[in-house]
């Protein structure tokens, strides 16, 4: 569930778990999230030995392989600092599934349970731990927000992205139909059932575009990879030379809009 407001107890140090998707495919989003946190006066620690939370194997039916990868991550965050993750999906894996993954390993289970208590999804951390409110410097713009299923149903933090955007004076958040519906990514689901996944992402893109928003934001890069990958493919099919619906991680949007002389 969403972290209850503990603003005021600002930690001086946090760990940042970037996720493999951000490290390799959306490094800018990770950098922007870290910059934003540092601007709030927090020391951000990025253990370079981090790799992946193990979720791809776990959800695909290979828990042993997931466990091997997860066991490595467990060793990387020894201090009692919050672990901030710019993805509801990977945060949910560490918070909810690590303790179960190590159910039969007392020592690691204890570690996993202790870690679970200090895992935060990025937007939840901003809103409910830091009490962050973006001082919007940008021009008027309309965005549409896609919240990942894990952020919504596993972490229960779907309101925090919304809250961040609602507090920005130049930003209007458009509402898409079937807002809470999955974008069709689902990790290896998109490869194992590509036709169904394709139908889902096509519908999702249509709903997002129908709002007339200028860009789509999400706090999960897995969804963005899927939605933006399909949007770019569709633009190419339609002969569009520029993106009809650009998108980015909410951290990048927040950072840009709060800089002096910010553009959209």
């Amino acid at each position: 569930m969403q972290t209850q407001g503990v603003a005021g107890k600002r930690p001086a140090d946090i760990y940042f778990f970037a996720t493999c998707v951000v490290d390799q495919f959306f490094p800018g989003a990770g950098l922007d999230a870290i910059t934003l946190l540092e601007r709030e006066g927090i020391r951000v620690h990025f253990p370079v030995a981090q790799t992946c939370c193990g979720q791809p194997a776990y959800t695909s039916g290979f828990p042993d392989q997931a466990r091997a990868v997860a066991a490595h991550q467990l060793t990387l965050f020894p201090e009692n600092w919050p672990l901030v993750v710019p993805s509801g999906s990977c945060a949910g894996m560490i918070k909810h599934h690590y303790p179960r993954l190590f159910a039969d390993d007392p020592q690691r289970r204890a570690q996993a349970e202790a870690l679970s208590l200090r895992v935060y999804e990025f937007t939840d951390f901003l809103v409910n731990v830091l009490g962050y409110a973006a001082q919007d410097q940008g021009a008027e713009c309309t965005v549409v927000l896609h919240t990942s299923c894990s952020a919504r149903r596993e972490m229960g933090v779907h309101l925090s992205s919304r809250q961040l955007l609602d507090g920005m004076k130049g930003v209007t958040v458009a509402m898409q139909d079937h807002e809470s519906e999955c974008c069709g990514f689902g990790g290896t689901f998109s490869l194992k059932q590509p036709e169904i996944s394709a139908a889902m992402v096509a519908d999702k893109l249509e709903s997002l575009k129908a709002t007339g928003a200028e860009r789509v934001l999400s706090a999960d890069c897995g969804c963005l990879m899927n939605i933006l990958g399909h949007a770019a493919w569709k633009d190419a099919q339609d002969g569009q030379t520029s993106a009809t619906l650009p998108g980015e991680h909410i951290a990048s949007f927040l950072l840009r809009r709060t800089e002096q002389g910010a553009a959209k």
Binding site: T59, G61, C149, S150, R152, R153, E154, S180, E181, C182, G184, F185, G186, G187, T188, F189, S190, K192, Q193, I196, S197, M200
Partner: peptide, 10 residues
Amino acid sequence: LTTASSLCGA
């Protein structure tokens, strides 16, 4: 059939 889910949790 078990693969035909994105595990969205709905």
